[in-house]
Design a binder for these strands. Structure first.
Lengths: 184, 184
DNA sequence: TAATTCATGTAAATCGTTACATGATTAT
DNA sequence: ATAATCATGTAACGATTTACATGAATTA
């Protein structure tokens, strides 16, 4: 159960409302690391506040409440980050699909792989552009957050992209070899 | 909910018992793609059999039942693999930890990063060895499964490893710059 | 003023994990 | 004989998702 720590981590960067946290999950965190919807986030914020790990620091229009992490929350987050479990829980549907790809015949597998190659080509291009734009920015605490994470996301994309192209080439060579087997 | 498809995919490679499937999740699938314990696997196998997507083909000692995927199950798996959702579900505690790393002060972050670097160095070495050992093997259907997945796992490890070393160097340079700021 | 976005919540249903439970076979 | 491993299950609890619900503020 990592949701509370994900929330504490985001609040440690800067205070936010539940609504803003929800959007952070949709954009960055949820794409690579941990997804959660507002229906888990709001109750969890209440629990964190009840436990003294977060607190409401500001109330805005439309009942918006800005939460900040407390010193106790910061300590909890630090402990959690410094004591990782041996085997972390992994559940990634995209990766699962890649692992099961060989259950398809090569023609079908190629369709899927080409789609992956295309979308990761695009993803790499986008993320590289974003990185170049922010390359000049200072590297202090809160901003460092985005940069470490962005670099991680980019390298992840590049790895999948490289793998997809490698797999395509491999499958194509195999198919080519089948077709050309009769004439040496 | 991808568990049924994960099971169909494994059974598509070759028929197995629930016990063997459980171990496959512990070893390969669960490390990178999708974790599941026997308490989800056994009931799910019964559901798949009830739905005609899998069937018991053999009964061994100790009540062991070997399941195989049916033609309907193969069709279901194919459909699932060929129609991916826009946004797949991701939940990876390890990656979450990396995303939240910048919430720590640089000294603590370096501790965690060095641990990651060490364990991925090791992982890359291990997986490379395994790959070399199997490099000579033929690349037909069922074995291809392992090879695509193994390559994916290796590249994933290498990406994390590269990122960790990059982040360490960056943080060390930052700290070094702080310390040397007084004497130009 | 109508539509959109902001902003928060609850309830029911589904899904997953942990703990509990049992017994057969094989290895020491 | 004893321990380890094989092999399957159920029940209770906790976490997550989906559907439902509401209203304030902003934009067109």
């Amino acid at each position: 159960m990592s949701l509370p720590h994900a929330l504490l981590g985001l609040l440690a960067v800067r205070p936010r409302s539940g609504y803003e946290l929800t959007k952070a999950f949709e954009r960055d965190l949820g794409r690579y690391a941990w997804q959660a919807g507002h229906t888990s986030i709001y109750p969890e914020l209440n629990r964190l506040a009840g436990a003294g790990l977060a607190e409401v620091t500001h109330e805005g229009p439309r009942g918006a409440r800005t939460y900040a992490v407390t010193p106790a929350g910061r300590a909890e987050l630090r402990t959690w980050l410094l004591t990782p479990p041996k085997q972390a829980k992994v559940r990634n549907e995209q990766v699962l699909r890649m692992f099961l790809l060989s259950a398809l015949d090569p023609a079908d597998a190629l369709v899927v792989l080409r789609r992956i190659a295309e979308s990761t080509d695009q993803g790499v291009t986008e993320l590289r552009k974003i990185r170049e734009e922010h390359a000049a920015a200072p590297v202090t605490g809160a901003e460092g957050f985005g940069q470490l994470a962005a670099e991680y996301g980019l390298r992840q994309y590049e790895a999948v992209r490289g793998w997809a192209h490698w797999a395509i080439e491999r499958l194509e060579r195999e198919q080519g070899a089948d077709g050309a087997a009769e004439n040496p």
